[in-house]
Design a binder for these strands. Structure first.
Lengths: 342, 342
DNA sequence: GTGAAAGCGCTAACAG
DNA sequence: CTGTTAGCGCTTTCAC
C-alpha cells in the first residue's frame, strides 16, 4: 500500500470551508466575484489540507498540459546539456515543465518516447542532438509543434536551429589574421561531420578573401581527440616549418596541439597562435596556455528553441534551417605577438 | 490557432467501429471477452484514426501516472547525468517516464518544481546532486516516495544512495601497495567536501593497516583542478623526493600531476605511479599516460535509485544512507614497475 | 458478447 | 455572491 492517503481534492476543501466545489475553484483561481470572507475561509481550508490542484484533471478539461517533451539523441551529453538548459530558461518562466526522454540514438526508443509524449498530450516537442547533420523527422503528422535544436530535420517544413559553424570558422581565421598570422594550419575532426566541413569552409573562404590559403593547402581531417591533435602537429610542423598559427576543429584537438607544439620547442602563442572550437571550459581553461576558442552559444540556441516552440504552440510556427551565430572567446593562446601580458 | 484538430478519442473509435466506448476500451486493453471480429474491427478503426489513449484521463481514473520526477541540483552536470541515465534504465522498461527538473541549486526553484511535480501527480521523486554532503530534505510530508541519489538527506528516514568514497580511496591505495609502492602522496580537492575527507580517510586507514602513512604526513587539500595538481606536485616532490606514487582526489588533479611529474623529469608510472578518482573518460583517457582511476559507478547508482523508487511506490520503502561500491579502473599510470608492456 | 452509466477532479456556464 | 450542472476521456461495474 502506498504511503499516506490520496491528496486532498477540491471537494474536500469545499466541505471544510462549507461551500461548493465551484466556489472553491473560483476563489483559488481568482475568477468570478466572491466575498472577502469566503475567499479567506477557502484559502485557509486549502492551506490546512495542503490542497494542490490535480494537473491531470485540469489538463483534461483545458486540452493543454503546459508540458513539453524534450527528446535527445545525445544521452545528456556535452552538447545537448546546454541546449536543454536554454530550453528550460525559455519555458520555465511560462510555467511549462519539461519531459525529458533520452533516445540514445535508437530509432525504436525514439518512437517509443514520441508515443508516450503524445499520449501525455504534451503541448510541443523539442528534438536535440549532438551534431547538426540532417536527420529524418521524428514522425509525420505529429499533432503538436516540433522544433529541432543542435540537429536538423531533412524536412524543410520543420524548424531547425543549428550553430553557424562556417561563420565560426571564419571568425577564428579572421581573428588570427588580425593578429598578424598568415601561415595558418587547420586540424579538425572527421570529414563525415557536416560541422567539420563547414568550419573548414568558413576558414578557407576567409583566407581566400585575404589572398591566402591553408598552410598545407588543405585541412587535416582526423578524430576529435587530443591524441589526433598531437599526431597532426608533428605532421604539420614538418610540412610547414614556418607555421605561425593553427585553427583546430575542436578544443580537444587544440589541447593536443598545444602540448605537442610546446614539446616541439615552439611557444604558444609567441611562435604559434592557437584557436579551438566549442569552448568546453574544462578543456579550454585547463589548456596551457588557456585556449582562445569559438563558442557555439548552445544555451542561447536552446533558449531560442524554447521560444520558437512557444510561438508555434501559440499558432506562429516558423520553418527552415536557422543558423545561429557563434562567439569567439579570447584567451592566452592567440595573444598578439607584441602585446603586453596583462 | 494550434495546428490540426484535437486527437481522436475513444468515442470516435467507437463510432467508427459501430460499438460503444466501453467495448473499445476492453478491446484495446485486452480485458473482458469480446468476439474476434469486433476486436479486429475496433483495432482497425483505432489504427485508421491514429488513436492514442489520453494519459491524462487514464491517470485521473487510475490515480497513478506512471511518471516520476527527477530533481537535480547539478544542472545536468558531470555527476547527475550518469545517475539520470541509470534511473532511466530502471524506470523505462516499466513504462515509466521521467520528468526532469533542474533546480540549479536554488531553494526557490526546487520548491517550485516540487510543487509542479506533485500537481502532476508523479508516482515518485528522485533527487540528485553533485556531491554527497547531506542536505535538507526537499520537503516534509511529501505524499509520494522520494529517493536521494548522489546526494543525501539529513533525515535518516529518507533513503539516500551515495558512492562509497572511503572504500574507493582504500581501493586506490591497496592497488598502489600491491604494485610495490610505499611512499605515497595524496593530493585532493577542498576539505569542505565530504567526498574529499572520506577518500582521504580510506587511503590513510589502508596505509595505517600496512604500517605506513602518507608521504607528507597528510593530504594536500586544494582545488579540483589540473592547475592545483601541477602546483601540488612541485611541493610534493620537494617535500618527499623519494615519492613513488600519488593518489589524487579526482582525475583533473591527477592529470595536472601527470604533466608536472613528467615535466619534472620523472616517469609515470616507472618512477611514480598515479591513481585518480571519477573515471571521467575525457580526462582519464586523454591523460599521458592513460589514468588508473576509481569509478563511482554512478549509472549503477542511478539504476538502483530507480529500482528503490519502484519498490517504494509498490509499498516497500527503504531508509538510511546506502554506500555503493566503487570500482578501480586500471590503465597505464599505475602499471607495476617490472611488468611487460602489453 | 456488448451497452449503459457512473465517476476520477476540475472548471465554465448558467441559475438562483 | 454562491450553488448546480455538465462534461473533458477513460475504465469499470452491472445489466441485458
Amino acid at each position: 500500500m502506498p504511503p499516506g492517503k490520496s491528496p486532498a481534492t477540491i471537494s474536500d476543501v469545499a466541505r471544510l470551508a462549507g461551500v461548493s466545489p465551484g466556489t472553491v475553484s473560483k476563489a483559488l483561481n481568482g475568477r468570478g466575484a466572491l466575498s472577502h470572507g469566503t475567499i479567506a475561509r477557502i484559502q485557509q481550508a486549502a492551506e490546512q489540507l495542503g490542497y494542490q490542484p490535480n494537473a491531470l484533471a485540469r489538463g483534461l478539461l483545458a486540452g493543454r498540459t503546459f508540458t513539453v517533451g524534450l527528446i535527445t539523441t545525445d544521452s545528456f551529453g556535452r552538447f545537448s546539456i546546454p541546449v536543454m538548459q536554454g530550453a528550460e530558461d525559455a519555458l520555465g518562466p511560462g510555467r511549462i515543465s519539461v519531459f525529458l526522454c533520452d533516445s540514445r540514438d535508437d530509432q525504436i526508443r525514439e518512437q517509443h518516447y514520441l508515443r508516450t509524449l503524445l499520449e501525455r498530450r504534451v503541448d510541443g516537442i523539442i528534438v536535440t542532438g549532438r551534431r547538426q547533420d540532417p536527420r529524418e523527422p521524428i514522425g509525420s503528422d505529429i499533432p503538436v509543434p516540433v522544433v529541432y535544436a543542435m540537429t536538423s530535420s531533412t524536412d524543410p517544413a520543420d524548424l531547425s536551429l543549428v550553430p553557424d559553424d562556417a561563420e565560426g570558422g571564419a571568425d577564428a581565421v579572421r581573428h588570427l589574421l588580425s593578429t598578424g598570422r598568415t601561415k595558418i594550419g587547420h586540424v579538425t575532426g572527421p570529414r563525415s561531420f557536416l560541422a567539420s566541413r563547414l568550419r573548414t569552409q568558413g576558414a578557407e573562404e576567409t583566407l581566400a578573401a585575404a589572398g591566402l590559403e591553408l598552410a598545407t593547402g588543405g585541412p587535416l581531417y582526423g578524430e576529435w581527440t587530443e591524441e589526433w591533435g598531437r599526431q597532426a602537429t608533428d605532421a604539420l610542423l614538418r610540412a610547414a616549418p614556418d607555421l605561425d598559427a593553427i585553427f583546430c576543429g575542436n578544443d580537444q584537438i587544440a589541447r593536443g596541439v598545444a602540448d605537442a607544439v610546446r614539446e616541439a620547442g615552439r611557444r604558444v602563442p609567441e611562435d604559434i597562435a592557437l584557436v579551438g572550437f566549442d569552448n568546453w571550459e574544462v578543456i579550454a581553461a585547463a589548456c596551457r596556455p588557456p585556449l582562445t576558442t569559438v563558442d557555439m552559444n548552445l544555451r542561447e540556441l536552446g533558449r531560442i528553441a524554447g521560444e520558437e516552440l512557444l510561438a508555434a504552440i501559440d499558432g506562429h510556427p516558423s520553418a527552415g534551417i536557422r543558423r545561429l551565430p557563434c562567439t569567439l572567446v579570447l584567451r592566452e593562446s592567440s595573444r598578439p605577438r607584441h602585446a603586453a601580458r596583462t
